[in-house]
Amino acid sequence: MQKIIKLLSFVMLLPIFFVGCADEQDFDQINDLEVIPTVEASLFFLETPEQLINLVTGVNFYSQTFTFTAFEEQFFADNVLEGVITYELENTTSKPLVIQVDFLDAGDNILDTENFSLVPAPTAVLTREVTYGDGGRSIDVIKMTTNIRISATNLGDNSSVSSLPSPKVVLRSSGRFKVQLVE
């Protein structure tokens, strides 16, 4: 029993010998911390049936400017570093078409334009990626955009109808952006 008590006493006092040591810490490392997630989401989508294109006289069958304030949200505009906008266009109509996307600032000045020439169906889906920042176009285009204008032009006739089911032209888009949360 005495031995047990001595052993327990030793164990009891053992921690004292360890008190007060510390590896070197460098709290300034926190200044090197960067948190830059990449976020992505759909941006805008346009679908026009060939039937409607045939009904509209003139070549410009659709033009719409709409507000798009996602980019000008203060946090996003202040912290976005670079991004890629992906477009997918699908033309199943019988007509050659041109789709134009304009990025506008608050004064409706054009910051950037993207043109898509679509041949009549059958044709493959047109996919295009446009880079902003990091060697691409200026990221300021994204930061300053408050409106987007989509225009569609018919370079064909107003009577033909594609033999494909539900002929239409479709524009899909998404954005993928690097945003600096912590710098």
Partner: peptide
């Protein structure tokens, strides 16, 4: 659920305000 601004014609021809995003 959202897939961004969606303009489906001819239904959205009546929306001339351009406030799709809002």
């Amino acid at each position: 659920t959202t897939e961004g601004v969606e303009i489906v014609l001819p239904g959205d021809l009546v929306n001339t305000s351009g406030d799709f995003f809002q």
